[in-house]
């Protein structure tokens, strides 16, 4: 089983001063899966995300990615090992073009040295040409055609900015792609398109996807595996079907009253989770 896990986090604790944001969480991501991390606001999802990507160092616990412990590594080292990410509030390089954003994403996969750059050796020229070609391909892959490539990223429509962020993360050549609320603020049409894109990334590129998402329709529709956090602790994990019928989850989302209401309440809650 364990060799099928791409990421295995054990006993993760994160304290900010006296506040425990994540409390003793075990968390697994099967290789090749689409896994979702859900929970009410403030449950510690993004904190957990940031520990995987190296922005935070866990207070205790280990994170093993692809057979190697990565907790405490710098974000760039984590990215180099094969974890790409997007941000909850888009963090593109606003005054670089879409193409340049994707080129920056390839940074850790390019090898031109300072001397190579100054001498502009044949190797560096070829590498640059290949990088530009790949950047174009990635933009097309996420549905941003050539016409958008040379627009400043901040001038792109909101939905395209989300896609561009995914293209930029894909450019780092990840084994695991972390998406932090990728459909936030999108209309149903855009959400559908993006859901398709996520599935395409997994099916065609074989990249494992970890998703933080509030839109239950997206989560239930796409995930094979769901973990639920509440108040920093893991309260449930399993298939969408299991999560949908889990008392504790319903309680966390809709409050104690709804769960205690018996069958009727549960029906409402389940509908809530289903939509």
């Amino acid at each position: 089983m364990s060799e099928n896990l791409l990421l295995k986090a054990t006993g993760i604790v994160k304290q900010f001063g006296g506040l425990t944001a994540v409390n003793n969480v075990d968390f697994n991501i099967p290789r090749g899966s689409i896994t979702s991390l859900i929970g009410p606001n403030g449950a510690g999802k993004t904190t957990f995300f940031n520990m995987i990507t190296g922005l935070y160092v866990p207070t205790s616990g280990t994170i093993v990615f692809d057979g190697e412990e990565i907790q405490g590594l710098k974000p760039d080292a984590v990215t180099t090992r094969g974890i790409g990410r997007t941000f909850q509030n888009i963090r593109l390089f606003a005054h670089m073009t879409a193409l340049e954003n994707v080129l920056v994403g390839q940074h850790c996969r390019l090898h031109a040295s300072l001397l190579g750059i100054l001498a502009l050796t044949k190797k560096v020229r070829e590498e640059e040409a290949a990088a530009h070609k790949r950047a174009q391909e990635l933009l097309e892959y996420v549905g941003l055609g050539r016409s958008r490539a040379n627009e400043l990223s901040k001038n792109l429509p909101y939905g395209d900015q989300r896609r561009l962020e995914i293209a930029r993360a894909l450019a780092t050549n990840p084994k695991l792609l972390l998406l932090d609320e990728p459909t936030a603020g999108m209309n149903p049409q855009e959400t559908d398109d993006l859901t398709r894109l996520m599935r395409k990334v997994r099916d065609e590129l074989g990249i494992t996807v970890l998703l933080i998402e509030h839109d239950m329709k997206v989560v239930m529709g796409i995930s094979e595996h769901i973990t639920v956090l509440d108040h920093g602790a893991k309260i449930a994990e399993g298939s969408p079907e299991e999560i949908r019928n889990n008392e504790q989850v319903i309680e966390a989302y809709l409050g104690r009253g709804a769960a205690a209401h018996g069958k009727g309440g549960r029906q409402t809650a389940a509908t809530g989770l289903r939509t």
Binding site: T53, L55, K74, P75, D76, T79, T80, R85, F87, R91, L92, F93, A94, H95, M96, V104, G105, H107, C108, R109, R168, T172
Partner: peptide, 12 residues
């Protein structure tokens, strides 16, 4: 542009 995002893109 954004030091944190740059770091997350693998820039040392």
């Amino acid at each position: 542009e954004d030091e944190l995002a740059a770091e997350a893109m693998g820039i040392n």
